[in-house]
């Protein structure tokens, strides 16, 4: 295993894409800290580095599966994976060594981002350093789970389109979970009107005017008729989506960065802030990582390498 890791490490160090990725992370961190200082000087932002540090996660969430896909797929494309198998390296160790090297890259990119933020943010303090460290650790675990899924795809799908699949996976998980969060925050009932106009009264105040389906104006906007909201997600789909967002790396990403999620509470008839326990998030990440790795190992052992 160490021999394969050593070979993978050298191979990864040798590729331009590793350094391009590092430059990308450093560049985005630089922009982040520049914007922070600018908004602080204008009084639009609080004087804390916490968010800047955590901003590594969405960038890495997209970048790492692409790097992972490229790294593993190049081994297939150049045929160099054959050199490992032919000389007696087990398929299991080849798979695990690939995954480990991708996790090392994850840590490397995170360190690059954090160093740039810390250097650029000299003089700016943290609100809660221990919380930032804790949440960064959780995010690394989540992205490690994503890398395990990407490694699975890149190992099983050997064509060049594996790279596209890895990129789509990251984008799909990230934005899919965001969409689900938005859907879960939708109220169960919604006001029933055909048209709303924004008008200025004689005193110069802005007002909304609501009209029904026949063009009649509702006299009291607080007394609009309520109908079931078609955008409200009902059970059992609601529980499935919530569980999916807890388990999926995309859902976990937003959950950890925002410190929770917003849902519509049918009984209270208001949006409430909820948070999935962090131990659950960590456990799900480990389960996703282990599940996809075991499945990948099983399929890779039976895979015909051409």
């Amino acid at each position: 295993m160490m021999k394969l890791l050593s070979a993978n490490f050298y191979s990864m160090l040798h590729t331009k894409r590793l350094w391009l990725g590092a430059a990308f992370m450093a560049g985005l961190a630089g922009i982040e800290i520049y914007a922070k200082r600018r908004y602080m000087s204008q009084g639009f932002a609080d004087a804390a580095l916490d968010e800047c540090i955590l901003s590594f996660a969405p960038m890495l969430f997209i970048l790492l599966p692409i790097v992972c896909g490229l790294f593993i797929n190049t081994d297939y494309h150049d045929g160099t994976i054959r050199n490992k198998i032919t000389v007696g390296r087990s398929r299991g160790s080849v798979y695990i060594a690939n995954l480990l090297i991708v996790w090392l890259v994850e840590i490397f990119y995170t360190v690059v981002h954090v160093v740039v933020v810390l250097v650029g943010g000299i003089g700016i303090k943290f609100d809660d350093l221990s919380d930032v460290v804790f949440r960064s650790g959780l995010l690394l675990l989540t992205i490690a789970a994503l890398a395990a899924v990407a490694a699975f795809i890149a190992t099983i799908v050997t064509g060049r389109y594996a790279l596209v699949l890895c990129a789509l996976l990251a984008i799909g998980l990230m934005f899919g979970s965001q969409m689900m969060n938005d859907m879960l925050a939708n109220p169960d009932m919604t006001a029933d009107y055909e048209q709303v106009l924004m008008v200025t009264d004689e005193d110069g105040n802005m007002q909304y005017e609501f009209y029904d389906h026949e063009g009649n104006k509702y006299t009291d906007p607080d007394d609009l008729p309520m109908v079931p909201n078609p955008g409200y997600v009902r059970e059992p789909l609601r529980s499935i989506m919530r569980k999916y967002n807890d388990v999926s790396p995309g859902g976990q990403l937003w959950e950890i960065i925002r410190g929770g999620h917003v849902e519509w509470d049918k009984e209270k008839q208001e949006r409430v802030e909820l948070a999935t326990p962090v131990w659950q998030l960590a456990l799900y990440s480990v389960v996703v990582t282990a599940g996809f790795t075991v499945l990948g190992l099983l399929l890779f052992k039976r895979k015909d390498l051409k």
Binding site: S6, A7, H14, D78, T80, R82, K84
Partner: peptide
């Protein structure tokens, strides 16, 4: 055993020396 099956299995972005060193690493 050593093998060249179908196309030569080499890292295209590496020199000949680096390719051989890489295989030395794989072999330990």
């Amino acid at each position: 055993m050593g093998a060249v099956v179908e196309t030569p299995s080499i890292y295209l972005d590496m020199t000949a020396t680096d390719n051989l060193r890489q295989q030395c690493r794989v072999l330990g």
